[in-house]
Simulated scan of single mutants.
Amino acid sequence: MSDPFKQLRDALDQFATERDWDQFHSPKNLAMALTVEAAELQECFQWLTEAQSRELDEQQLAAVRDEIADVQLYLIRLAGKLDVDIEAACRAKMEKNVEKYPADQVKGSAKKYTHYQD
């Protein structure tokens, strides 16, 4: 695990311990909280056009930053509970995606990988 992820994980552990919240932070509960935060991130873009979603004003961008942080912090907390190295998991998933989505077959297409399998 890279140092920034470890530092954040340790800070989150301390934050929860100081508040006696560890009792509530089961993997199930953290996964559920993560989906709530992801929905709050999605809400920042609700009703915006594609163009508007690319041209956020400072207030909108601040809200998006906060929600991205909430999502990431819950991911780090969940990963810590399950002893998952986020950086290693992401690299492994990227390798899987290279295999699932061969550039010569999927370039410029939004189709799911299952549409490219023989």
Rank of each mutant, 00 (worst) to 15 (best):
A62K: 10
F24R: 13
D57R: 11
V84P: 02
Y113V: 07
D66H: 10
D10W: 08
L48D: 01
L30D: 06
R19I: 05
K107R: 14
K6L: 13
Y116K: 02
A110L: 12
I76D: 00
Q105P: 02
E67T: 12
K6T: 10
M1W: 04
D20I: 02
P102C: 09
A110N: 14
A69S: 14
Q7N: 14
S26P: 05
K111V: 03
E55L: 12
D70I: 07
C44G: 12
M94T: 08
V84S: 03
S109D: 14
A88L: 09
T114N: 02
F5L: 15
P102S: 13
D20K: 12
D10H: 12
C44Y: 09
E99L: 15
M1K: 05
D66T: 09
T35V: 03
Y74H: 11
A92G: 07
Q59L: 11
D66R: 13
H115I: 02
P102A: 10
A103P: 01
A63D: 14
K112W: 12
Q72W: 07
E50W: 09
E37Q: 08
L30Y: 07
W21K: 00
A92S: 12
D57K: 10
K81G: 03
Q23S: 10
N97F: 10
D104V: 10
A92K: 11
A89V: 03
K111M: 08
